[in-house]
Design a protein around this nucleic acid. Structure first.
Lengths: 335, 335
DNA sequence: TTGTATGCGTTATCAT
DNA sequence: ATGATAACGCATACAA
């Protein structure tokens, strides 16, 4: 009921607030016995130094924000797990923001964070196609930002990504080696840096194999399951590709549904490889060949970079690139 | 670079800080023109009222905490999504805590939150078997708490759960109707309220069908994949059940792996039904029969209950129970 | 409608 | 080793 603050605790102990305060901070000198008394009393009365008061004084919040497009997604939930673990170790709070892939929300979130609410931001971007200048202000205001996975190339902050080009290249080559001659590339936003890079790997692998690139084999999908279902149905019926390389897990899933419904056999009629963080890819029917990104590690690295910046240590390497793993399974097996 | 606060903004505008402050609060009277001027200037200088200062004054944080066992889990990530959406609408911040199913962490998190950091907590519990008295203090300190899914029965706070008993009952009956006579129940912590309730539904469905309950068909599993693999391998080899009812998704996954490796056919040799929030259950090999909980709705309801409490509206119903859906698929098909 | 003054709870500085 | 005090930035009660 009664809220106990430092003042009341001090009164109960016949001490000054400064002494009590000292008991909770590492540095200042204080008699060990006094400290013990204070800590005991604090425990008894369930006292905790008020967060807002401390942070107002210190001008820091011990809090970071994570901004991601979505959370009900294996990749992001694993990455968040990684970030949270590092933050917890540093005794930082973790605020979470979901943009639902909406660029306007992203801007709103970031601008709101100028209120001293957080010490730093870790973000996977939602609006590649849009204007990023709103972030440049961030630079001026010195609120540290780190990108992971989906980055804005024109914003010069630390970034953690995977070797998307190489992965896309090897995934495409893998399909070709499995016998595909008409490999499609399914992507959600090919103008996003990440979609673009993956497409480049795809193109180059085709060229490398002497297969001409065909624009109509690049399928621009959406975030909406129903829309994708139609897009992919049309595409598969009309183009009859013999290989699908999908830039995100969701598109592989949609492809599976469509193929099931159309009676298209995987891998007999069409082979599939996808970027995916699905842990149970091997349990799918058929087992899905994946390029698995180290989502958790992406998160921990991003967090570690951010904390380096917060600690004033300039990161030696402003762009960390982690390797992904191509795991061939039945969906892309040579028949 | 230069940090602009309310004072500086006031100086630039030749106004007092109180007037500037008023421009940002809905209530107080202020000349619309003045307000417009202030807001314009705020935009220009990128001013945002300092979060900690406001909250120190107001003794509220506009922040809620979500405490869950894990996040890389379809159920929890969907629930979090629901909570976040409601919080966002209310213009609240959302802090996230992952306990990794560790009761000690849960206690630590909650106790740390006594520092005024958040206005309320939404939690799915990690330590049913442990002592919950640490939460009773919370009651005294009036920091509102709402449970969802995994609850502590002995703590009297608003709760949102699903109809676990009925779901477990019908899942078990479903297996029996599909021809199973030796149905096992796989559970992670049967002493947890939720595991217990599900087990009761299982038992009663057996009894209802005139099948005697056998203790050795209740398999106590862990959170660890490797351990479960061994536990389940032993169990399947030794007991040869013809039906598996698994209390959590993870155990169905492990069962699939084990059955694949042992050459046990699903549903031919053993049929499987599981509580699961897996969206692609129908793409598994074989398609997994699920009891699907409305995870997202659980989240939104929990959040709405919490905000009711925060707004001083006593919830009319202290325990909301949502229905789950049994979706039979190939894994439990009658042969 | 606007301004003045005070206090929210904490901690660093300075004094004792 | 401990105490008194000022300041962090803001929002309200009260005065004008």
């Amino acid at each position: 009921m009664e809220r106990v603050d430092i003042k009341r605790l001090a009164e109960k102990l016949n001490l000054s607030t400064s002494t009590v305060s000292r008991a909770f901070r590492g540095n200042s000198d204080i008699n060990p016995e006094t400290k013990a008394r204070i800590l005991a009393a604090a425990k008894e009365f369930n006292y905790q130094p008020n967060h807002h008061a401390s942070n107002l004084r210190d001008k820091r919040s011990n809090t970071i924000a994570i901004i991601v497009p979505e959370i009900a997604n294996n990749f992001f939930s694993q990455a968040i797990h990684g970030i949270e673990r590092v933050a917890r170790e540093k005794d930082y709070y973790t605020l979470i923001y979901l943009t639902d892939d909406d660029y306007d929300k992203e801007v709103m979130f970031v601008e709101k964070l100028y209120n001293g609410r957080v010490d730093g931001i870790i973000m996977s971007a939602s609006g590649e196609a849009n204007d990023h200048r709103y972030l440049k202000t961030t630079g001026n205001k010195q609120i540290p930002l780190v990108f992971f996975d989906r980055v804005y190339d024109d914003i010069d902050v630390p970034k953690v990504t995977t070797d998307d080009y190489a992965s896309a290249f090897s995934a495409t080559r893998h399909l070709i080696e499995a016998g595909c001659r008409k490999v499609a590339f399914l992507v959600i936003n090919k103008s996003m840096s990440i979609g673009n890079i993956r497409m480049q790997g795809y193109k180059d692998a085709l060229q490398d194999a002497g297969i001409p690139f065909q624009e109509q084999l690049v399928v621009d999908c959406s975030n909406d399951y129903d829309k994708n279902y139609h897009i992919l149905t049309d595409f598969l019926v009309n183009e009859r590709p013999d290989g699908l390389f999908t830039a995100v897990e969701r598109l592989a899933i949609s492809s599976y549904y469509v193929c099931h419904d159309l009676g298209i056999n995987i891998p007999g009629d069409v082979k599939v490889v996808s970027f995916s963080s699905l842990e149970i890819a091997s349990l799918l029917n058929p087992a899905l060949s994946t390029i698995t990104q180290p989502a958790y590690d992406l998160g921990t690295h991003a967090a570690e970079m951010l904390f380096k910046v917060l600690e004033g240590i300039p990161p030696q390497n402003n762009h960390i690139i982690l390797g992904s793993k191509l795991i061939p399974r039945l969906s892309s097996a040579k028949m």
